[in-house]
Design a protein around this nucleic acid. Structure first.
Lengths: 346, 346
DNA sequence: CTGTTAGCGCTTTCAG
DNA sequence: CTGAAAGCGCTAACAG
């Protein structure tokens, strides 16, 4: 759409200087117009914008970044890009950034700690204004150090308990777990088992919610009914087998994520048990698979995209040097009831 | 890790100038060392690196970008970040970029054409060195225009047939479809139906492969056995129903993507047909769901991550101004046999 | 092999 | 309300 009256035959694009001379004003004025400063006469502004449009000009971000000290870029670190779980958070964050006219730089760490460190180091030095961190396991010390260097960041979906003062956004694991357990209890189950994930904040909190629901229903927790597993389908299957081998097996299982729940369903089905008729299973996360699997999984939905958006909004406030009272944000979850849960057999 | 002997009490980090004076050399020399230029004495280099390490210095990318005219950033546009399909390509691309010490800037377009245009416009102007484009539908004209402006890019997984001269990386749709159809034929099926997706390059090519396999087996194509659908599960179910209502229904269906295949399976099961005993179904893509669904889906795997990597490697060559002979790259697919296919009932 | 110097394109005081 | 001028931190000729 560039008009044929472009002033420059040279390869590069028009610069602010070209616009200025074409519009008969100084570059300072053009800069003001471009940055929507109020102190420009309406006429002047119009004249400048006219030329800007005609030339198809748009400001060179590198130059602006160097001069203004802000890049408009935010680093987003995450273990793996294609994992659905992270990509939802990423998606929310990217979208929220877009709305602020900012962009996300992707930094996959592949679970390699040295990569995390290198990446962060580089991000800090003039590449980005701040970062959204999704880490496989955070060390409060390192994060503190980062913070002391004055680099703004927020941890999304923290894996561990973080020091106060470290900005973070997470799901309300405990209340979600409580919902899930209550759902099972409400259905009439009394022996409700739990398959927990690996140690960490999520597991701790979800266990807290599980116990809280049990306690509220006046049921004494049975340690036999709580087994730990890795977060994988196979782990869930193995754990469920152990549970079902118990002399007095559970009639319902609350698995701490969907993978584990799917594994549990598989294990039950493998031994001829019908889900949900003979065993109810609830998951956590509501990944894509939850709806696809047979029977469709009752599970606790995490507001992943929303966590990404929230993280950005927190970060933006940090960038603006606003005082932020609530540094740690927790987002409510929602129980999605599908077909893997039913009242226990009479 | 910053030593307490930092020369600057000021807020900012050390600059190349600080390093230069600390090391007793000129900034040009520091720059040379930083850029691994060969023309520096080993001693000098060591001395400089010493100071660099001590100060925890790392070069300001914005400044380098402005000065050198290269940002080390590549824009990646894609319709939706959290769609597994795209995120695999994205993942491969990001990883390949990382290896080149480059980074990806995420640009989700949400299927909005104006966003695509704006984004590209911005990407061009000093934000990125080039781009990987995943578009819902490309217009060769617009891409040509982009190319004429001298902006390097490559289209990943093109939706439409592109002009020659537009760099692109895609899957070998035709040969993949041929494999799939041959698999069915090899099992003994004679009435093999196809559920195509919406018009576009993928559908065209896959249809070509389907017909080629039929022809090679000496089977005349029956137009009744080819029905079109959107790319969704519901569409697949509807299409399969039409097929199964035929007076002489197919014993096997090749669905042009996994969603359609899942829909077909659902439709068959809904009318009491067993898959694969009474109906074989093959998909295309090998999404996450393919392995989860019951029965697990036989499907054609697209090398998505590899496409991303390839796109980057093509782009990098373009950036280096290398003459590239093969602008259009096609990556082989692979048939993944699972449980949704079997010989027809005797 | 090393230093000097001139910008890259933009933002931002500081005057007027 | 507008302009002049001083950099932001780095790279890349060009001398020496």
């Amino acid at each position: 759409m560039a008009s044929s009256t472009d002033i420059r035959a040279r390869a590069g694009r028009a610069t602010i200087r070209d616009i200025a001379s074409l519009a008969g004003v100084s570059i300072a004025t053009v800069s003001r117009v471009l940055n929507e400063r109020p102190d420009v006469a309406a006429e002047t502004r119009e004249a400048v914008l006219e030329v800007v449009r005609a030339q198809g000009f748009s400001t060179n971000r590198s130059a602006r970044a160097l001069s203004a000290g802000r890049t408009g870029l935010v680093g987003v670190t995450l273990p793996i890009v294609h994992a659905a779980y992270f990509s939802y958070i990423l998606s929310g964050a990217t979208e929220a950034l877009y709305e602020q006219d900012m962009r996300a730089i992707l930094c996959p760490t592949l679970h390699q700690h040295d990569r995390e460190v290198n990446l962060l180091d580089r991000l800090m030095h003039g590449t980005t204004d701040g970062a959204i961190l999704m880490l496989p396991q955070e060390s409060s010390d390192e994060l503190k150090a980062l913070q002391e260097k004055g680099y703004p960041f927020v941890v999304a979906d923290p894996r561990n308990y973080l020091d106060e003062g470290i900005p973070s956004v997470s799901a309300a694991h405990a209340s979600g777990a409580k919902q899930a357990t209550q759902h099972l209890l409400g259905l009439g189950h009394r022996r409700v088992a739990a398959i927990t994930g690996e140690p960490g904040m999520a597991t701790e909190e979800r266990r807290t919610g599980y116990h809280a629901a049990l306690a509220a229903a006046g049921i004494a927790p049975d340690p036999e009914l709580v087994v730990e597993a890795d977060w994988l389908i196979t782990g869930g299957a193995a754990a469920a087998s152990r549970l079902l081998d118990l002399p007095d097996p559970p009639t319902a299982i609350f698995a701490f994520n969907d993978n584990l729940a799917i594994g549990a369903i598989r294990a039950a089905q493998a031994r001829g048990l019908s889900v949900p008729d003979e065993l109810s299973v609830v998951g956590f996360d509501d990944t894509e698979e939850a709806a696809i699997v047979t029977p469709a999984l009752t599970t606790v939905r995490q507001p992943l995209a929303e966590m990404g958006r929230m993280a950005v909004s927190l970060l933006v406030r940090l960038l603006d040097q606003q005082r932020v009272e609530a540094l740690r944000i927790e987002l409510a979850t929602r129980l999605i009831v599908r077909n893997s849960t039913a009242p226990p057999r009479a």
